[in-house]
């Protein structure tokens, strides 16, 4: 991600942000609320269109064609997005589909996977995030933690090259946060490339390979987790961290 800027109604939310996530890395994005963390994430898969700058996934630009000007048509953009998983703060499960259908919907209809194969894989993924027994339930009966684990399985089912987590535990009751973080931790250990916007400091410290701290739309610090938490370089980061200890 290079020099990405984005404004809403004249207010600059992201200012020339650069971010680099290496394959297999987990990067946590921290920062006070309203600092532009979510917008940053949503720009990566073009749910928000950046005003300037460019985003590359494995060297290929998203949103704009190789000439750097023409916007990608719907179909091409969809194909790019299929390679980027996303887990949402408010889960955004599709309520008319059962748990297993939520997980197989995109693999079958976007990737064109055979139904049997998609179901088999979905079952394994649901098992992996610990909700195999909820296979045929509909989203409205699930707890927030269960919904979010379905959300993670749904993203994984696309075999994405990277998964974006947009405050995945912020909408959960405290006692349900643990089950979701456990699933995420397991993923990170398997070498999934992850970008996580979160307020869970302990998780960020333990699981991340790198911390990116942003404030007022700018990247203020990027460091290894121990360094960031123990020896923050800037006053803003110190002030931010003091609120969590």
């Amino acid at each position: 991600m290079r020099n990405v800027s984005k404004s809403f109604a004249g207010i600059e939310v992201l200012r020339e942000v650069c971010l680099n996530v290496a394959h297999g890395q987990t990067v946590s994005v921290l920062g006070p609320s309203g600092s532009g963390k979510s917008t940053l994430l949503r720009c990566i898969n073009w749910l928000e269109e950046p005003d300037s700058g460019e985003i590359l996934i494995a060297g290929v630009r998203i949103g704009v064609r190789a000439d750097g000007k023409t916007h990608m048509p719907d179909r091409e953009l969809a194909r790019m997005r299929a390679r980027i998983g996303m887990v949402f703060q408010s889960f955004n499960l599709w309520p008319h589909l059962s748990v297993i259908e939520n997980v197989t919907e995109a693999p079958i209809h976007v990737l064109g996977m055979a139904e049997d194969e998609a179901i088999g894989r979905a079952e394994k993924l649901l098992e992996k995030v610990g909700i195999g027994e909820k296979r045929d339930a509909y989203p409205y009966v699930l707890s927030g933690g269960q919904k979010q684990r379905v959300g993670i399985a749904r993203a994984l089912a696309m075999n994405p090259e990277v998964i974006l987590f947009d405050e995945p535990t912020s909408a959960l009751d405290p006692e349900l946060v643990g089950e979701v973080l456990a699933a995420m931790r397991a993923l990170a250990e398997e070498g999934m490339t992850m970008v996580v916007v979160t307020h869970e400091m302990a998780f960020a410290r333990e699981v991340s390979d790198e911390i990116v701290f942003i404030d007022q739309g700018c990247v203020v610090e990027r460091q290894a987790p121990e360094a960031f938490f123990d020896r923050p370089q800037t006053a803003r980061a110190r002030q931010f961290l003091s609120r969590y200890t």
């Binding site: 749910l47 194909r79 997005r81 390679r83 998983g85």
Partner: peptide
């Protein structure tokens, strides 16, 4: 949004 993010 979730559908878009999943490549629809």
């Amino acid at each position: 949004e979730a559908a878009r993010a999943h490549g629809f």
